[in-house]
Design a protein around this nucleic acid. Structure first.
Length: 474
RNA sequence: GGCCCGUUCGUCUAGUUGGCCUAGGACGCUGCCCUCUCAAGGCAGAAAUCAGCGGUUCGAAUCCGCUACGGGCUACCA
């Protein structure tokens, strides 16, 4: 049994989106599980769609997800001679032929076929040109392509690891182009040559390729190479049930990083798009995914990305992170604030976060004086400014008298202040919350006060009381 | 038009050697508990006539056929 080698082979036309990331992930999981290699190949034979910087973006996305490849990526545009050599072999054996038809003729032909409601495929006119004559014309510089000569009879059977056995009638297959007139190979030729040379054992790719799989099989056969095993992955759909390649909220994997998602969560999320371990487990690390992955557990039907689930997963993974690690990941989002200052606050927010970015807002009041203490919520329903000022002042006075500043000392004091004022404790807590943090939704108040320190708490209470007593004199 | 793939709660799915499925889990949703806000957590609940029809069988979500619907491919794009 030859070693397992698989690959992710994107074309550099943009960034890495969720669907591509999933294809890469499945290849990665399988290779790692089998102790094989995961390769990256850049499919850049179409110079018209090529986008500068795309390769770097794709690589960054893969790296962020932790999908590291084992060998330097093969770049097809640097390998033209190799493809030509394969084309020559095919030409020599009659498995391919030169075609001199012009684009204009091809267009006319298709228009007629369409009008007659016939299948649109090349009519094979050039297939009957004697090879010697074709070679002469080619040598004379006549512009041409090389087409695959598909057998006119029989069937080609694909044993797909996901789709099962799929039988194609050869007669329905088109003589597609292998070598373009600009000298570049099409995907089909490059695919066969590259995967053979890279000793790829498993081709795990999007099911957009399923219809051309028989031609690929035929190509391997004509070249007398052992074909790899195939696994065609169903589409990933967006929330609108349209293929998730085009315009959807965040389509680039790196945008999820910007939005505060953990790569662990994104990996877990896309792993379950069309695959499941067959158990009720739903939160798995990448190592657990590697251990459980199985190609035959991949669903043959398309999966729709449920972004709400990603949010939930993200929260789950955030909660599982060690405090120091979480602090380290949040720190870059809060420029100017040291990790050391953030770490002690982590326990207050860890179970409240859905995305990393939310920490910034939640923790802001620790590093910055609140601005909107004049929130209407400062005064509880049914109370007035005077009563609230009194409560604030009473609380401040009581807190000032504390010699110990701990959760155990602060809370009882505040509760008794509430009693004295005739307020329910919850009302007092909300007033204090707004006064101290400037917000109505915060980490636990008492603990926050503890971390903030007595002086800053008292100062903020005082300031809030002042804003209540009327227009400030400044 | 031709070729090919698919169809279990709103969504991701379990189910694949037919019986333990009056279809299980998760997200989301609703309610309750906890509670200083918000979360988290706990408990409970609503939610799928397994696309439809017809077979095979003592018995089918699971096997077969047909239909419908959805999707992909049909380029000198990948």
């Amino acid at each position: 049994m030859p070693a397992v080698r698989d690959r992710y082979a994107p074309s550099p036309t943009g960034a890495l989106h969720l669907g591509g990331a999933r294809t890469a992930l499945f290849n990665y999981l399988y290779a790692r599980q089998q102790g094989g290699q995961f390769l990256l190949r850049i499919e850049d034979t179409d110079r018209t769609r090529f986008k500068d910087g795309s390769q770097a973006l794709i690589e960054e996305g893969l790296r962020w997800l932790g999908l590291n490849w084992d060998e330097p990526p093969l770049v097809q545009s640097e390998r033209k001679p190799i493809y030509h050599q394969a084309a020559e072999t095919l030409l020599a054996s009659g498995a391919a032929y030169r075609c001199f038809c012009t684009p204009e003729r091809l267009n006319e032909m298709r228009a007629e076929q369409r009008a007659r409601k016939e299948p649109e495929k090349y009519d094979r006119r050039c297939r009957s040109i004697p090879p010697a004559e074709a070679r002469r014309r080619a040598d004379a510089g006549e512009r041409h392509v090389v087409r695959q000569a598909i057998p006119t009879e029989g069937t080609t059977t694909l044993q797909d690891l996901v789709m099962g056995t799929v039988v194609f009638k050869n007669a329905t297959l088109d003589d597609h182009v292998l070598l373009k007139s600009d000298g570049y190979p099409t995907y089909h030729l490059a695919f066969a040559v590259d995967d053979h040379q890279s000793r790829v054992s498993h081709v795990i790719r999007g099911d957009g390729w399923l219809p051309s799989a028989p031609k690929h099989l035929l190509l391997f056969q004509a070249l007398q190479w052992d074909p790899p095993a195939f696994a065609h992955l169903p589409l990933v759909l967006g929330p609108d049930k349209k293929p998730l390649a085009k315009r959807h909220g965040a389509r680039d994997v790196l945008e999820y990083r910007e939005a505060g998602y953990l790569p662990e969560a994104v990996v877990n999320f896309i792993a379950f798009l069309g695959w499941s371990p067959g158990t009720t487990e739903d939160i798995l690390t990448i190592d657990e995914l590697i251990a459980r992955f199985a190609i035959d557990k991949i669903q043959p039907s398309p999966a729709m990305a449920n972004l709400e689930r990603l949010d939930w997963l993200n929260g789950q993974f955030i909660r599982r992170l060690p405090v120091a690690e979480l602090a380290k990941r949040i720190a870059p989002l809060m420029p100017g604030i040291a990790v050391e200052s953030i770490e002690p606050l982590i326990p207050l927010v860890q179970e409240r976060l859905r995305t990393l970015n939310e920490a910034r807002e939640m923790l802001r009041f620790f590093f910055q004086e609140p601005e909107q203490v004049q929130l209407p919520q400062l005064v509880p329903k049914g109370r007035d400014a005077a009563g609230t000022t009194a409560a604030l002042t009473a609380a401040a006075a009581a807190l000032r008298g504390l010699s110990d500043w701990t959760l155990e000392t602060i809370e009882p004091v505040l509760r008794s202040v509430a009693d004295q004022c005739g307020w329910p404790a919850r009302d007092l807590f909300m007033t204090l919350r707004v006064a101290i943090t400037g917000r109505t939704v915060t980490p636990p108040l008492i603990e926050s006060m503890g971390r903030l320190g007595k002086d800053r708490v008292l100062a903020r209470l005082q300031r809030a009381a002042q804003t209540l007593t009327g227009p400030s004199p400044n």
